[in-house]
Each structure stands twice: as C-alpha cells, then as structure tokens.
C-alpha cells in the first residue's frame, strides 16, 4: 500500500482546519459551529498522526486518544448547552441570541 507523505498530511490538515475555522466564522447555527469545531479538532489530530508517522513514534497516537476524549467531552457539553437553550423556549439555534444567560 502506498503511504501518504507526512508533508502532504500537514497540508491536508491546514486545509481542514481552515475549513472548520471558516465554518465557525460564517455560520451562526450552534449545531454547525459544533461540527466545525469537530472538523478543526480532526485537523489537529491529523497533525499528531502525521508527526507520529514521520518519526515513527507511538506518542502521536497517544495524543490522538487525548484529542478523541477532548472531542467527546466538548461535543457532550456543547450539545447539553444547546438543549438547555432550546428548553428555555428559544425558537432558533442562532448563537447570537444566547448572549443573555442568567443563572
């Protein structure tokens, strides 16, 4: 099987991260912002995997496991916040309508 060179993997990670960042900047829907954060975390994980492949070290995949736990935690907390906002009777998922949090 042909292998992907780590330099090209870095380029792919840059493109993925920029896509996720653009998604956060241009979308106001909270669900889409969470998905964009997931894309950005995946780009960071790709950098770790590529570095681990370049130097043939398993520490990169250990950090990938860390990022995996981080993404799961972040998604759970973010979705709980979304459900909480929605339970207050907010009709839309617009992030700008959530700027008055009390209690």
């Amino acid at each position: 099987m042909t292998a992907l060179p780590p330099g090209d993997a870095l380029l792919l990670a840059v493109i993925l991260f920029s896509t996720g960042l653009a998604g956060i900047l241009i979308r106001r829907n909270l669900l889409f912002m969470l998905m964009s954060i997931d894309i950005m975390l995946n780009a960071a994980a790709l950098v770790f995997i590529a570095a681990g492949a370049k130097w043939h070290d398993a520490t990169g995949q250990v950090m990938f496991l860390m990022i995996l736990a981080l993404a799961a935690t972040e998604t759970a907390a973010g979705l709980a916040i979304i459900l909480r906002l929605h339970a207050r009777g907010r009709p839309s998922l617009d992030a700008d309508t959530g700027n008055l949090l009390r209690g």
């Binding site: 099987m1 292998a3 992907l4 790709l46 590529a50 496991l65």
Partner: peptide, 16 residues
Amino acid sequence: LACVFTLLGAPFAAAL
C-alpha cells in the same frame, strides 16, 4: 479521514 490515517500507517487511530 480514517482512510488517511490508514495511509499514514496508523490503523489503530483509523479504527478509533
């Protein structure tokens, strides 16, 4: 991205 991980020689990360 899992396919990319496999191509980078990280099948465990791809499965996860």
